[in-house]
Design a protein around this nucleic acid. Sequence first.
DNA 1: TAAAAAGTTCCAATTATTGAAACTTGGTTT
DNA 2: AAACCAAGTTTCAATAATTGGAACTTTTTA
Lengths: 268, 268
Amino acid sequence: MAANASGDGTVGKALDVLDQVAAFGRPVRFAELQAESPFPKATLYRFVQTLTNQGMLSFDRERNTYALGVRLVRLAHAAWEQSSLAPIARDEISRLADDVGETVHLAQMDHAQVLYVDKRDPERPVAMFSQAGKVGPAYCTGVGKAMMAWLDEESLCRIVPQQSFHRFTPKTLTNEIALRKELANIRDRGFAYDDEEHEPGIICVALPILSPRGRVLGALSVTTSTARKSLSELETLVPRIRLCAQSIGTEAEAWRFPDQISKEVRTA
Amino acid sequence: MAANASGDGTVGKALDVLDQVAAFGRPVRFAELQAESPFPKATLYRFVQTLTNQGMLSFDRERNTYALGVRLVRLAHAAWEQSSLAPIARDEISRLADDVGETVHLAQMDHAQVLYVDKRDPERPVAMFSQAGKVGPAYCTGVGKAMMAWLDEESLCRIVPQQSFHRFTPKTLTNEIALRKELANIRDRGFAYDDEEHEPGIICVALPILSPRGRVLGALSVTTSTARKSLSELETLVPRIRLCAQSIGTEAEAWRFPDQISKEVRTA
DNA sequence: TAAAAAGTTCCAATTATTGAAACTTGGTTT
DNA sequence: AAACCAAGTTTCAATAATTGGAACTTTTTA
């Protein structure tokens, strides 16, 4: 809830203000920001002015309120296109969702959290930002556990201590030891479950998306409700999901490093 | 193509770097940025480091490339939710798309450009470059013209000179005089056409979304191809679209200013 | 109408930014 | 294998920006 105190100079502080506005989730008055800001009035005021000038915040002069600006939406579209798996995985995911007839999620790690970058719902197709951009906990979601299970120890040591281990349901893993054990199981098994650990009645199977070299790029999950399917029924879909995950991993490598061919030519 | 030279202190300069990276549309090396940056090496280097620390850029240590970071996607989700019409208009647009059986776009102005914030495609996706977060020209799109037609003169004087007036098709309006005349027609008519002005074979009708007080909040369009429908056929949909636009405008006012009722009560 | 709160500006002390240059690293050529 | 080149990274004193207390103006509340 408190500010980051990121330390990254002026730019870091200004970006903290952005997060603060985002946290409100609604247009916010200057005084409201001031009340819980570590910065003195004049400093915060200049930040807010600068960000507004820059289009990162929008100002409603009738109500004197600030909200996140449209420049962010524009930038995010570019971010989504160039640094997420979503555009690469797009067609693969659609096909997967059609085949399995259940909701498919595509996620990546964002610091210690899970960031959903795409979603395919066979019932009703939805627009991009409504779903993409949402964040969730890593320790109690299928995609989160799938990614962590294949991360190197160094990354895990950063990420695991940042988990809240809040008990959402009776089945939520609520401490590091239980999570570590689960991650080992997942690695052995080759995929992760979410057995109602985040939401009662919601289960999923998830697989990591690995680059050919074995780096964790993201994760893929198929979600359903206990009313529709059992975990063992979900498990039968794993080979199909694995196919999709592998194909995305390969494509991602090719897409991100398209110049390796011309480079080899030069070398020859 | 050149940098903004925004002037807004350190923060503005750093944000310019973000735009620069976005403009590449692919992971970019430090040297590539340096080559066309107004900042000296060390300065640019620190910007890029700061932005990476902050999660606004992501760094691929295997390839030494920078891309837009996932924090942007997260922030944009919040921006989309709190400062765009999209969440308000969501259900209305879905219903409209179902009723008319054609692609529906929801757009807002972003400086002098059109920002598409949502899209609903009932059936086969026609090949077009438009998605949430994408920007387009104002002078040759239905939504752009619809918004401009109801803007105050002051805003127009800012926006119109910034139009490129690039000729996309033989029917594109290519100067301010033609555009001004068209805007007057649109105001009289009550809605805007896009008669293959941006893409050959693509036509649409567009209506502004106005607040009850008459402020331009955005625009709504129904798009099709000349192969499917004629302009006059499209025109028959206008009353239905108008209904949708009005309802969104009313809802938006209520949502953005939910306390105006209690205020009137207090005043009375 | 008065009082209080919110929003805005000012300016000297402070602090961070700046950028030329030196240094390190990784890869390519001789 | 050594030398070379280019890309990436760090250093540090001069410079220029940020900082924040306080005063000021505007808007809201009593």
